[in-house]
Design a binder for these strands. Sequence first.
DNA 1: CGCGACGTTGATTTGCCTCAACGATTGTGG
DNA 2: CCACAATCGTTGAGGCAAATCAACGTCGCG
Lengths: 186, 186
Amino acid sequence: MRNLAMHVSLDKDEADHVQSALQYKIIRKNSLVLKSGDICRSIYFVNKGCLRIFNTDDKGDEHNISFFPEFWWAADISSFSTQTPAFYAISALEHSEVFQLDYTVFEKLLVTVPKMERFFRILVQNGFHLYQLRITSNLSKTAEERYEEFQKQYPGLEQRISQKHIASYIGITPVFLSKVRKKLFG
Amino acid sequence: MRNLAMHVSLDKDEADHVQSALQYKIIRKNSLVLKSGDICRSIYFVNKGCLRIFNTDDKGDEHNISFFPEFWWAADISSFSTQTPAFYAISALEHSEVFQLDYTVFEKLLVTVPKMERFFRILVQNGFHLYQLRITSNLSKTAEERYEEFQKQYPGLEQRISQKHIASYIGITPVFLSKVRKKLFG
DNA sequence: CGCGACGTTGATTTGCCTCAACGATTGTGG
DNA sequence: CCACAATCGTTGAGGCAAATCAACGTCGCG
């Protein structure tokens, strides 16, 4: 899900079209970008900061599904691509700056810049792939292994976001993450 | 992922086109329909029997991601839609009969029967939705709750497939599933 | 018939959670 | 800008869910 262009090489004209479709936005830390149940009307290219996508269970506990630091595209892909209510919510973990692409504008862009079809296909594919990894690692790996996967997947991110969000991502309590970390490095 | 038509109503002519694109196939019990690493070149409408999609971890243990009993479409959607190597494998849990739709034929079908675009969109959307449910239920529910979810999702299937495959699906050992079942009904 | 895979059951172990207490860090209102 | 509150990360004690190991009866299949 990295990179604005994302394996789609655009000529000057196409790049201008895309550029003018994007809206620069500031997202304050902890503010909600997408509320669960609302329709995901935009996708967001993160230029600075970090967003997260998560769901809230019956008990009120939040579970982070992925993080979107710099140069990732953030969205509830399922909701965006079908314009139906989102299962997940999206919020900012840091003060963030994004380029927003609205669905209505995106549809027109698909006509003027057909290469965007490919761009979107890859976005969906990566979303799928990400889910697959989460499912299988939750089914077959220990907390320690999942923590190391997180470090590999998001280099440097552990210095920027709170332990409790990392714990939520790997599916354990912050208390237990603290013990895992202690065991791993002193 | 149910139903051949799947929310797409076709007229006589369109239905004929689709019909002639499908290939009837017998799949023997336990035979591999798709090998992990191969490209998923077809999707399969299950007319009789039951397929499963699963992955094999480093330790050699298999983890079932979903089942495809009658009237479901089976595929590694990610691999099929991008024609890249599959992460998962697909095999038959019972003697099965399917209608096979090859990617090359599918592409042509999209031209002659544009409604198939919608069909495929829904297929992908359902795949996404399924993954989301698995992730969140693995993160926030107990084995007992996940077992009941399985029963609701696949009515009657527990009578047809082995306990170990159900256990693999809900992410526990067959031994523990046996104890959960004992507790639930005598 | 006999072998191997399967499901069950009990005993034991382990991974992770809950609860509670404590400093450290962050956020907030005056 | 400070004072206080709230949240956070750490640590220890204790508990529970699920895994592992092992033994045994059953079933399907060659």
